[in-house]
Design a binder for these strands. Structure first.
Lengths: 374, 374
DNA sequence: TTGTATGCGTTATCAT
DNA sequence: ATGATAACGCATACAA
């Protein structure tokens, strides 16, 4: 300790320790932060003793601890996390990379993640993506902050995943299933969700399908579409008319009109939408603009089971992600990677839950009705 | 530089500079991070030269810059933000403290804040509150991380605001109007919003009001209530029947039933709800459960203008916060405080915008109808 | 249990 | 323009 530049440090061992109030005023005068040296000086102990008092489980005598804590409280001393992380190599920060779309679908996801991360004593440093293409720039920033781990609700390239390995930064991919990549993943099986939905609808006799897809580069939506399309093919049903949406209400409304237009004016048996919000748009368009009875004339289904899907005016047929479980699992997996690096990649895949709702007909029509429909 | 412990550093001035690949392998072997010393060694310059190359506007020759950047790219060197912040006293992090409820009302608020904060080169460190009472614990954590500033979408006590001053941490209070506190604030005038809504409804002849209030400790909702009640009193209208809600759909449904029960079975002229989601619950209850025509028999109004309020099935009468402007203003204000500390407190108050919608009758009834209603 | 000495990786100051 | 050196505030190995 040779900080003799500071007036407050100009104290030899023999000089009396300053009082808390005196020293605090001096620090204020010098316009600097309160450090562990200040606490040590006031408490009459060494700086390392102060440090130990703030480390859980360190060996400090009751007497020393009490003196230090009294001084620390009086000076309003708080350890500096930046300095600490420099030496411990732990920043106690976890980066969460989240694309805008993901955030809007699951308003609770971020808050839940934050809660679970906080439980382990770390905090969330937030990186939002407004286009998936910004990811490389954002990652560059992530490295700087020396975060202890990353939860990414975005689609990473293999090169990007590889950089995490090289830099030894634990990574959990959230709500994206990167097929064929050996990355730690917590996700919902979107492919299976697409298949399951088609199976249920087909079993009830739907034959002509329309689909309102998600935004172009969205991996979640394309997985669902793939599942749905493959299941349709397996069942020998005609290919679905697929139009592009961007997950919002307006694109659900437009999507239905476009499907009908592209089908020569015919209304399909069922429309599968890439999100609940689009499904709600589709539903409102069908009922209020086109005067179609749902589900009598048209079945509509969504994905996500957002809160609104459950409102009386909609009561949507949809598939629920077990978000609470997924966020808890993501935090847990990340912590285990941080504590124990270098294990094999683990994929925790959750099954989507079918929500019956009332916007899709889920029982087969009686024979008479079938002949009428045909 | 006396890091002679490292094999890779065991190089005197006369020894040849190692190649990028050699050095990188050595670093890997020693299982340590790439530092500016490594880059300096490979590039054949001093460590300070490397540092300058990463500081915009520093004076470095083209030749040196090129050599350094080549080495840095090859080694995948990224400056360590923790070390940097230790000396610059800038962490390039902004804490955002947000209570759960706030997050759920405005799914875009956090993402927008993050975007605006990122524009200035900083990132958001997220602190979520699950109860407002957790705030003291959370603040303790905030100090540790040495954030450059704080945006708090939560209600702070005077003592808490004072601690920000003492610690000289710039603070912007978001979407809360702390009356009488000299704190920097970006908010929407909730009191005025409450008044405005009552004024509009009263002008259209509504006389008997019910209110579904927000959660107990929520300052935003109580401001609105205060504005609404005071305006009612001014107009000489009867006191509103007020029931407590917790901002969610279910409490909107229950709230309407409770209001009617507490009014001896009479349906009020209008129900003012503390949030759109509650208003939607109230609306669904009125229409689907009680068979009331809205707005013919009952007017329903909300607050917030969330996306769903605009859906065809609802088309809610509500009040919009200019969220985009508010988030931009909050980030801007915080940056100005960081760059120029110690100015007088500034309050940026935005006016809520009335959204007519179709769930409240906004024109006076014709005389004949009035006599019928009376 | 306590204190001394050192290093974490950077920026800033000051010669050159 | 460049290099040597001193902070920044803390944790830790080691000696006492």
């Amino acid at each position: 300790m040779q900080r003799l530049a500071y007036e407050t440090m100009r104290t030899t061992k023999d000089a009396p320790a300053p009082t808390i109030a005196e020293h605090k005023a001096a620090i204020q005068r010098e316009n600097r932060r309160v450090t562990s040296y200040d606490v040590a000086l006031v408490a009459g102990v060494s700086q390392s003793a102060v440090s130990r008092c703030f480390k859980p489980g360190a060996s400090v005598s009751k007497h020393t601890y009490a003196r230090v804590m009294k001084a620390a409280d009086g000076l309003e001393y708080i350890p500096n996390a930046a300095a600490r992380s420099l030496i411990t190599r732990r920043s106690n920060m976890v980066a969460v990379i989240i694309s805008n779309a993901a955030n809007l679908f699951y308003p609770e996801a971020l808050s839940e993640l934050s809660k679970h991360v906080a439980r382990g004593g770390k905090r969330v440093l937030l990186f939002t993506l407004h286009k998936e293409s910004e990811l490389d720039l954002v990652l560059n920033d992530v490295w700087q902050y020396q975060v202890d781990g990353v939860i990414a609700a975005a689609t990473l390239s293999e090169a990007q995943v590889a950089e995490f390995e090289r830099r030894r930064v634990p990574l959990v991919i959230f709500n994206r299933n990167l097929r064929g990549q050996a990355a730690n993943t917590v996700a919902c099986d979107q492919y299976e969700a697409g298949r399951a939905l088609v199976s249920r609808l087909a079993a009830a006799g739907h034959r002509v399908f329309g689909m309102i897809d998600g935004a172009q580069d969205n991996a979640v939506a394309s997985e669902r579409r793939r599942g749905a399309c493959e299941r349709l093919a397996e069942l020998g049903l005609p290919e679905a008319v697929i139009v592009r949406g961007n997950f919002d209400y307006a694109s659900g409304k437009l999507g239905l009109r476009e499907i009908i237009a592209r089908s020569g004016g015919r209304v399909p048996d069922a429309v599968i939408c890439g999100s609940d919000v689009m499904a709600i748009g589709c539903l409102d368009c069908a009922r209020h603009e086109l005067g179609l009875a749902v589900p009598a004339q048209l079945s509509v289904a969504g994905f996500d089971a957002v809160e609104a899907s459950n409102w009386l005016s909609y009561n949507l047929t949809t598939l629920r992600h077990p978000m609470q479980q997924m966020t808890a699992a993501a935090a847990e997996l990340l912590y285990s990677l941080i504590d124990n690096p270098g294990g094999a990649a683990e994929k925790r895949m959750f099954a989507p839950q079918f929500v019956e709702g009332a916007t899709a007909r889920l029982v087969a029509l009686p024979p008479a009705a079938v002949s009428l429909a045909a």
